[in-house]
Design a protein around this nucleic acid. Structure first.
Lengths: 209, 209
DNA sequence: ATAATATGGATAGCAATACTTTCCACTATC
DNA sequence: GATAGTGGAAAGTATTGCTATCCATATTAT
């Protein structure tokens, strides 16, 4: 198929497809002439995937490219896949390293130790979490820390179900795809459900019957 | 205090403070002369809060302004507060209304009904969730829907703990502040914990001991 | 066969966002 | 009285994520 059909099949405008090709989110088609190329089902799939990461997952073009590149590079085990997906999906941020930050880092380390989680020191979620906790501290919202444990337990529950589902896949490419999709879109799913449950709970507790 | 101290106390550069004042994220100081104004502790707090929403919560300036405006406008009950916080924090998106979308909307409605959640039809999380589910469908990742229920249960658990903590606050302004902070920063906390737990679970299941 | 349309690829343009910079008349402080 | 800081307005800037325009060639329609 040529670019027009690729566009029709995915709903992505042609100029945007060209842009994604330039940016390496989607691999080039097979050249058949000076200004002709063929795209296949793999391109359709990849394009949909790229769009999902950018639109629903909120990843930047650069992060999405990195995530896709890592996922579908050869020689990765399932284990690598998950770690690298996370790495690619965490945008770089600068952290204010004040007292609140030091305490938050300690808190994260303690939580991980207490839970017995095996997490590499390089996992960027450590810093992201520390940053969020430090922010809460700076806003004098320290009492949220009581909830951390129940949050962690909840996260375990989620991870258990997810890993189980992902591991059920056959080939590595399916695992890779599932991990990428799941990590990115899953955040949105969890966040939305949390908001819905919050409205329900607050209505029950505070609202009229 | 004047702007330099406000900047020192919060770590926000003076030009950025001026920008936030222009954009209405922070109320103007009390004027004492043609080019002089006084800021107080309330300004420090508000500025920190605004920064947290933008930096950690990832809200746009416009969303942050809206969230802050709604939170601290008079005449709101705790209940209004939570609903409006969510509304302000969900950025507007366009949805592709195809078959996958219709099915996803039905799925969301069914889930809410099954759970017995009392959620207004206007809650934007409905659409966000439907969009995410439709995306999964379009990527042929339908088997994730088996997990939805366990996700929903997890979300309930989170919401229970959160509402309990927030409701414990004394005055409405504290509730408002907690809700705003919690909704925005909480997403990041949950997402980070989920990633850490994922790494742990995948290491256990797939990795070497 | 030829006219209209489409293609791939390169380059440039554009709108939105989140700041920064520059000015300026004035104020505070050393 | 010199120097630095202030509030406020306006213009400038860097980045991001597309769009639009060109153009030589290909494909398709007539």
């Amino acid at each position: 198929m040529r670019i027009a059909e690729l566009s029709r099949r995915t709903g992505v405008p042609i100029p945007t497809i060209k842009y994604y090709l330039r940016e390496g989110l989607v691999p080039a088609g097979e050249r058949t002439g000076p200004n002709q190329a063929q795209y296949g089902e793999a391109h359709v799939k990849r394009l949909k995937l790229a769009r999902a990461l950018v639109e629903v997952g909120g990843l930047s073009i650069a992060s999405a490219r990195e995530a896709l590149r890592l996922m579908f590079s050869a020689g990765l085990s399932e284990l690598d896949t998950i770690g690298k997906a996370q790495y690619a999906m965490t945008p770089a941020r600068e952290y204010v390293e004040d007292e609140a930050w030091d305490e938050a880092v300690t808190e994260v380390d303690e939580l991980i130790a207490k839970r017995g989680w095996r997490v590499k020191a390089t996992n960027p979620a450590r810093r992201t979490l520390a940053d969020a906790l430090a922010t809460l501290r700076r806003l004098d919202q320290d009492d949220y820390f009581e909830l951390l444990d129940s949050y962690a337990e909840t996260a375990e529950r989620l991870a258990d179900t997810e890993i189980e589902t992902v591991a059920r896949r056959g080939d590595l490419d399916s695992v890779a795809e599932a991990v990428v999709v799941w990590t990115a879109v899953g955040d949105t799913v969890v966040a939305s459900l949390r908001r819905l449950a919050q409205e329900d709970r607050s209505t029950r507790l505070l609202g009229n019957p």
